[in-house]
Design a protein around this nucleic acid. Sequence first.
RNA 1: GCCCGAGUGGCGGAAUUGGUAGACGCGCUGCACUCAAAAUGCAGUGGCUUUCGGGCCAUGCGGGUUCGAGUCCCGCCUUGGGCACCA
Length: 754
Amino acid sequence: GNVFAFTGADIHGRFQRLQGNSVFEPMGFDAFGIHSENYALKVGGHPMRLIPQNIENFRRQLRRVGLMVDWKHELSTTDPRYYKWTQWIFLQLFKQGLAYKKKAAVNWCPNDKTVLANEQVENGLCERCGARVEQRLLEQWFFRITAYAERLLHNLEWIDWSESTKSAQRNWIGRSEGAEISFAIAEIDAPPIMVFTTRPDTIFGATYLVLAPEHPQLSALTTSARRDEIEAYRARTARQDVVSRKMGESAEKTGAFTGSYATNPATGERIPIWIADYVLMEYGTGAIMAVPGHDERDFAFAQAYGLPIVRVVAPDDLDASAPLAEAYAGEGRIVNSGMFDGVPVDEAKSRMTEWLVGLAAARPVVNFRLHDWTISRQRYWGPPIPIIYCDECGAQPVPEDELPVILPDIEDFRPDDTGISPLARYEEWYRVPCPKCGKLARRETDVSDTFLDSAWYFLRYPSANLDDVPFDPELTEKWLPVHSYIGGNEHAVLHLLYSRFITMVLHDMGHLTFEEPYTRFRAHGLIIRDGAKMSKSKGNVVNPDEFIERWGADTFRTYLMFLGPFEEGGDFRDAGISGVRRFLDRLWKSAHDARTSGSPDVGVMRKLHQTIRKVGEDTARLSYNTAIAAMMEYMNVLRASEREAHRAEVEPLVQLVAPFAPHMAEELWEHFGHARGVFESRWPAYDLALATVDEIELVVQVNGKVRGKIHVARDITREAAISLAQADAGIARFLNGPPRKIIFVPGRLLNIVV
RNA sequence: GCCCGAGUGGCGGAAUUGGUAGACGCGCUGCACUCAAAAUGCAGUGGCUUUCGGGCCAUGCGGGUUCGAGUCCCGCCUUGGGCACCA
């Protein structure tokens, strides 16, 4: 999978270079994080010793694949010269108030013994190890990514990215427009309940309120008669883990009555306040107005507890008093809602919000699904968060000129279950003077999330060898933002979202002139083998070393690109590679047998220019499989001419194939006597006159069915085509009757309707 | 349930705007070369039918628009991915 992605990017880079562009193709290693640390724990080694060995192996393999990488700019996120600046970035966010510490319910992986970001939890399971994630109340560092939610969403409209990736980000950010509505409490003296809804138009149908079991206002609203039941319900739901709670969509709705009532601001009616675990504290205000007539979940709950169900929306063809057998969430007109009766749903949303705002009972609100990014990790293998806690001065940033805070080389780095990092066991490391008052203080012992390391690495590449700045302004201006980024969609809501956020922050602080890190992003597809995605756990991986050994790097690269559209991936079948090898062998042979005497064949040269055009266009849009097919097709023409090919017919093909098979192309280029490498040359230009087909097979249809083909000049006129078609015996026999209509598409077809 | 994407021969896949469906490759069949095999080269290869000219049917299913639909529209089915008791 890695070789597939890198090769695809490399071909693009090499192609751009042949186009005469300056290309910077960097490579780096991101080896901080749980993944590497767990590996070290498993094999009983130390990451500081193991990582360099692994990197060496990767480097060897990547070189073998033939990537045009500028190794002088290689970087490693575990290098203090790099993570010094990762810590610097933390401090920039801290300065802006975008890094803050709070105690909150966070995702805790009991297996990896650390906190995880929301983005690292899939269906309640740790994306890394698959353990069930628990909720723990811990004090953690957060990045205020939610402050950028609107912009992260908005910019998706203009950045040139794969639609699938943009769609994943949109879903993740999860913007919804609605209103926060205030429900006053009836009878007792308590502050109102705020609810969030996207359907303010249905407020006349709100027959009860529901709070999340953890809602902070709950105890004030629980009557003494109900206290025992409420407490019992809370205890029962609190015990359930995240997974079983969230999988409850189809399960029965349960809840408990608080004993208190609120007033519906639209109807003035007294409605009961309940708690139920189908309302989540993490979203909106942690409370909802229940509209059982028009919300599936509310409907199920109302049925279970015998609460009133009122219709306030009716489809156009239905009576307002028609009973509801199930929640109706479709289009229609407002009913049973006083002066709003008859208003279409869409219009009612804004009109009713306005009305409620006028009553001081509501305000328009936009809610996001996106949460702030938890970046603390209670693990060893990461950059220490550069903060010092002082009893007098509080949390103090480490002064920038004291960076990096070096991760100490310690023997026992195993994580434990305390929610505290292993670094906290090393007093000699964490005891430091307060940077402000000088009194004895202690370092933050958590490290930062690996995704922070990779959220800015592209900025570092051009400046990889500079030690006094994270990224040099001039170099950054010259090379960034990244013009072409190719990656996997698994990073859509992780790396790709985080790096956009960090870039925006640095832009807003004046460190960058651009606010989006990657102007063009293309998600590559997945390699399938034996009917499944290639993965170590499925045991269907291919070792590149073996294939390169047997077939050569050029054949391996070209085959990977030939198996399907690059952006969709493909089916890796071991046998299929032989066809690509055959093609490269034939090219090798043709080049060596090429004659210089005589002149090239006109027909072959015509095909050559058509091929140059197609390969160029296809390669530019990452349609590598069709580019390769076009070269193969040309090779077939070259061979079918039953004579030795002329050098002029073969030489340009060497340049076309060079991005795919660079090693062989270099050899052949030298064979043709060039003193400089093939990548010093320019992509051959095609002659438009030659590349344009001048004679075509005009398709002749009768009543839309193909009845014949006539060989004609490309620019044949309608009249000439018609008379030629009528003269053709094979076609004429279908023309039984005078033509009623004739369609002529120049250069394409003629359709005679009789 | 909502949002993206995909369904085409035995297989992987082609078909810029509606205009010859199946390019290219694998596999398969036959032939040449060889003592033989491999490699290589040549020819054939969607299905059914045929008097060997051809004819009919075919792009997940059912409708529609059009002279003409893999491509556009409506309704489904299957499948990959994202989100999901998100109000």
